[in-house]
Design a protein around this nucleic acid. Structure first.
Ligand code: ZN
Ligand code: ZN
Ligand code: ZN
Ligand code: ZN
Lengths: 150, 150
DNA sequence: GTTATAGCGTTACATTGTTGCGCTCGCCCA
DNA sequence: TGGGCGAGCGCAACAATGTAACGCTATAAC
């Protein structure tokens, strides 16, 4: 995320929180900024390392911030990586899917209705009521696939 | 899994391994048996606890057995639970989906082509080559939903 | 039988996430 | 305006999950 996009994302987050009447505190904002700036999944302890300079933060502090950002939909957690990534469209709550390249570590967030529909209808058949559908596809992105074919 | 089903599952596993020319050793078999008998996700350390009686096993031992069972497709790992579960149809390799009830902890393994197809086609659009599609839907099973409605 | 390899035991360690407790600061209402 | 209340946070300790490294042993192949 370049500086402009980052500033824009933070501004949007701020606006969203105001609108919702919730408090994007300094800690939460710091964590959000680090997660967004990374443009790739970052672990909680990696965030702590980045915070060493300035005001260091202990694990509970960072996890509390992350939990809150997750609840607000400003970041997502990648379960298979134990890492977090900024949401690309936090305006509305959504169940997204992730393409995770194990070559370059890049992650693409998708919001594909056909996948969501398949999941919903299969769950409905079983009488299952989904609350949090996790879809994380590990594989090779097109750039890395091209590189491998050399 | 009742005793008959368990014996059957173990027998099938044994047959599969013979057919593949791989060794289902005593350790691996013990771990597989514990995972299958549970009929619910079991953590690695829970397995170690069960093994306390008899020949205790340290973490590397259990994880090695689990890694091998995963590679053989005899068990699956539920990433969101950090836990393992016996595969219901290990005869052929497959990408399955899991419905995970956070009421009762029950897990259903599905192998639904419509989901797999959606995933594959969406990935293809992005030029992404999937190797391990993870689908774990957290929610409420029909039994627990009925209980909640009381 | 000899040798190569896969499997396993053991120790120590790394990474990720949580509990509990008490302080403080901002906010609400008398 | 000031007393109370609750969210947020610092801190210490701990819990849960997963790995690295190294050497021994049992199995398999020849
Ligand atoms: Zn998102
Ligand atoms: Zn890549
Ligand atoms: Zn399976
Ligand atoms: Zn249930």
């Amino acid at each position: 995320m370049d500086d402009d996009t980052l500033r824009n994302a933070l501004a949007r987050a701020e606006a969203l929180c105001t609108e919702r009447g919730v408090r994007l505190t300094a800690q939460r904002r710091r964590v959000l900024e680090l997660v967004c700036r990374a443009q790739r999944p970052v672990g909680a302890y990696e965030i702590m390392d980045q915070l060493r300079d300035g005001a260091p933060a202990a694990p509970p502090t960072v996890y509390r911030a992350l939990d809150w950002l997750l609840a607000q939909g400003l970041v997502h957690k990648l379960e298979t990586l134990h890492a977090f990534i900024g949401c690309t469209h936090p305006e509305h709550p959504h169940a997204s899917q992730f393409l995770i390249c194990d070559g370059c570590g890049g992650v693409t967030e998708l919001e594909d209705p056909s996948i969501a529909d398949s999941l919903a209808s299969v769950a409905a058949e079983s009488g299952f009521r989904p609350s949090r559908p996790i879809v994380e596809v590990i594989g090779t992105c097109s750039a890395c696939a091209a590189r491998e074919d050399d």
